[in-house]
Structures are given as C-alpha cells and as structure tokens.
Design a protein around this nucleic acid. Structure first.
Length: 211
DNA sequence: ATATCGATTATCT
DNA sequence: GATAATCGATATG
C-alpha cells in the first residue's frame, strides 16, 4: 500500500486498517521507514521505525499466541492495527502491532526506532542525558528502550488503535521512500530461533545490537 | 572489544 | 519452581 498522496514536512498520514490486515512478513517490510508518533499533553514524540520482527501467530512456537488465546495476548486475536504490550524479565515493556485478519494472531515486534522529534522528552523518560547525536541510539535502540522513551506501558497503552491519531499513539507515513532491507534471524528467543523474520534498514545506525 | 550476570514479575509447568 | 520477544553494570582481554 504505497504512499501516493504528498505530505508536508513534519506531517503524517495514518495507515489504513487494511495495511495491517495481511501476513506479518509483508506488514513488517512495509512498516520499515514509517513513523511512530506519541502525542500527550501537547508534546509530540516521533521516531522512524528501523528494525522489527514478525511473529506468525498460533503456528509460530516463538509467538505469544502459540498457546492460543489468553487474557494476556487477547489483543493479538482482535482486529489488526492495535498495540499488544507485554512485560518481560520483570523490567521492560515491548510493543507489538497486531496483524492479519481478526481471529488470526500475527504480530510485529518493534525493536528499534530512530528519534526524530522530542529528543529531550525521550531522554527524560529514559532517565539519561544526551549531549550529542552520538548518544541518540541509547534512547530507542531496543524494544524495551523505545517503550521507555515513549512512555509506553501495558496499563496505559495495551489495545490502543495505532491507525488513529486520536489514540495518542499511532503510526504515520511521511512519504519517505525507504532504502534496502536486511533480513536476519530473530533476537533473544530460544524457540524457532533460526527463522529469518527480523527486518531492518540496511546500514542504519539505530538498530539494536545482538546481545 | 566480548562475556557474564543480576534485576524483578507475569505466566506457565 | 522455571522461564522469558531485555537492559545495564561489571569483569576481562
């Protein structure tokens, strides 16, 4: 679903529901280069999506939906384009976007974004100081980091509609034409660890590093 | 530069 | 009781 309508600088168009109502592998590729937007109390944070992973639902042993629908993963079984947020390792939140048609439970894990606007607000939320651009990757390079930078928690944001600017957390298109994509195995998992389902912008300095 | 480890809780066995 | 789609600190080369 390529962007055709021109967009003014700093302006974003929301993505239609149908954008997310497809195979997570296709959605993942098309989501690279799009922009995550948070608008709360008059402040706007934006960051470009540079790394993500596809999870294939009930057929994917690494997916939270593998064991079927539970209270925790219910959002994944609902309509596409919504935020599924989970808490991990007793410390961190991670943000997913639900994909595929209702009843199927595919999703995309956002692993890294490149800060565009609201740098100081992100630094404050992360509890760190950024003195120059070389510090920016510490803000949002990693699934836990980007959630902290954007103030995303399960309590505040699970189930949010990411296609709607009114929700205060959404994904927009500014018309940028992305460059090449690199595909690798997913990071940090033990089941189905070899499947090539991690997608990143080739050469981008804000992707998370393998641990 | 890489390696190892502790934090801290929801979820599952 | 064990594990987990992580991170930051510390140790070591």
């Amino acid at each position: 679903m390529p962007q055709t309508k021109p967009v003014r600088a700093g302006e974003f168009l929301p993505l239609p529901r149908a954008f997310f109502g497809r195979d997570p592998r296709r959605v993942a590729r098309q989501l690279l280069g799009k922009v995550l937007i948070r608008e709360a109390s008059g402040v706007r944070l934006t960051a470009r999506i540079v790394e993500l992973e596809a999870y294939l639902g009930e057929e994917d042993p690494a997916a939270h939906a593998y064991a079927g629908r539970t209270p925790r993963n219910a959002v994944l079984f609902g309509p596409p384009g919504h935020a599924y947020i989970y808490f991990i390792y007793g410390n961190h939140y991670c943000l997913n976007v639900s994909c595929e048609l209702e009843g199927q439970a595919g999703s995309i894990l956002l692993r890294a974004v490149e800060p565009v606007a609201g740098i100081q607000e992100m630094a404050h939320a992360r509890g760190i100081e950024v003195h120059s651009k070389k510090d920016w990757p510490k803000l949002t390079s990693g699934p836990g980091r980007l959630c902290q930078a954007f103030g995303i928690t399960r309590a505040s944001d699970n189930g949010r509609d990411l296609t709607s600017p009114a929700s205060g957390l959404w994904i927009g298109d500014d018309g940028l034409r992305r460059r090449a994509i690199t595909v690798t195995p997913r990071i940090g998992i033990t089941k189905a660890a070899e499947a090539p389902l991690r997608y990143l912008l080739t050469g981008n300095a804000f992707v998370s590093r393998a641990r």
